[in-house]
Lab assay of single mutants.
Amino acid sequence: EINVTSHGEEQAKHWIELAKRMNLDVEVEIHGDKIIITIK
């Protein structure tokens, strides 16, 4: 399980695309200006 804290939408999209390509599950939480991505 990987937790990524992203401070930008572009960076977040990059991680989500990467996870989808690798067929991994992704959870995205938004806390103000921080985007927390959990890849399982």
Rank of each mutant, 00 (worst) to 15 (best):
A19I: 14
D33P: 03
N3F: 09
W15M: 11
H31R: 12
M22D: 01
D25E: 11
A19P: 11
T5A: 07
I37R: 00
I37F: 01
A19N: 13
N23Q: 14
L18P: 05
E27G: 05
I39E: 00
S6I: 15
H7Q: 10
K20C: 14
E1I: 12
G32T: 06
I36S: 03
E29D: 04
T5W: 01
N3V: 14
L18N: 04
M22G: 03
W15R: 12
H7D: 06
G32Y: 12
K34V: 11
H7Y: 10
K13T: 05
K34H: 11
L18M: 05
V26K: 00
I36N: 02
A12V: 13
A19C: 15
A19D: 13
H14G: 06
K34N: 05
Q11Y: 13
K34W: 13
K40S: 04
G32S: 10
I36A: 01
S6D: 08
H14I: 15
I39W: 01
G32K: 07
I2H: 06
K20E: 10
K13W: 13
E1A: 13
L18E: 03
H7L: 10
K40R: 09
M22Y: 09
W15V: 13
D25R: 14
E17K: 05
T38I: 10
I16H: 04
H31S: 05
M22W: 13
G8D: 14
H7V: 12
L24H: 02
N23W: 15
D33G: 05
L24E: 01
I36R: 03
K13L: 05
E29I: 12
D25S: 12
A19L: 15
N23S: 08
H7T: 08
E17R: 02
I30K: 02
H7A: 11
L18V: 09
I37Y: 00
M22R: 01
V28P: 00
E29M: 12
H31E: 09
H31M: 09
A19M: 12
N3R: 15
T5M: 03
L18R: 02
I36P: 00
K13S: 06
K13G: 08
I2W: 04
E27Y: 10
E10H: 05
N23D: 08
K40Q: 04
D25T: 14
E27I: 12
E27M: 13
M22N: 02
H31C: 15
K40M: 06
E17P: 08
E17W: 09
L24F: 07
I39M: 01
L24G: 01
K13I: 07
S6R: 07
E29A: 05
I39A: 01
G8M: 14
W15Y: 07
K13N: 12
I37D: 00
E9T: 06
I36T: 03
K20P: 13
I30Y: 06
A12K: 12
L24V: 12
E1S: 12
I16D: 14
I36V: 07
Q11F: 14
K20S: 06
V26A: 02
E10W: 06
I37L: 02
A19F: 15
K34T: 08
D33Y: 02
L18W: 09
E10V: 07
I30A: 02
I30T: 02
V28D: 00
I16V: 05
H14F: 14
T5R: 06
I37H: 00
H31P: 01
M22V: 07
L24Y: 05
K34Q: 08
K40Y: 03
V28I: 12
D25H: 12
Q11M: 13
D25Q: 10
I2P: 04
L18S: 02
N3I: 14
L18K: 02
Q11E: 11
D25P: 03
V28N: 00
V26L: 05
R21F: 13
A12N: 14
A19W: 09
R21T: 09
E17C: 08
I16W: 12
I39G: 00
V4P: 07
T5P: 06
M22K: 01
V4G: 07
I36L: 04
E9D: 11
V26C: 05
I36Y: 02
K34I: 13
S6M: 09
R21Y: 13
H31L: 09
E29L: 09
A12D: 12
I30L: 03
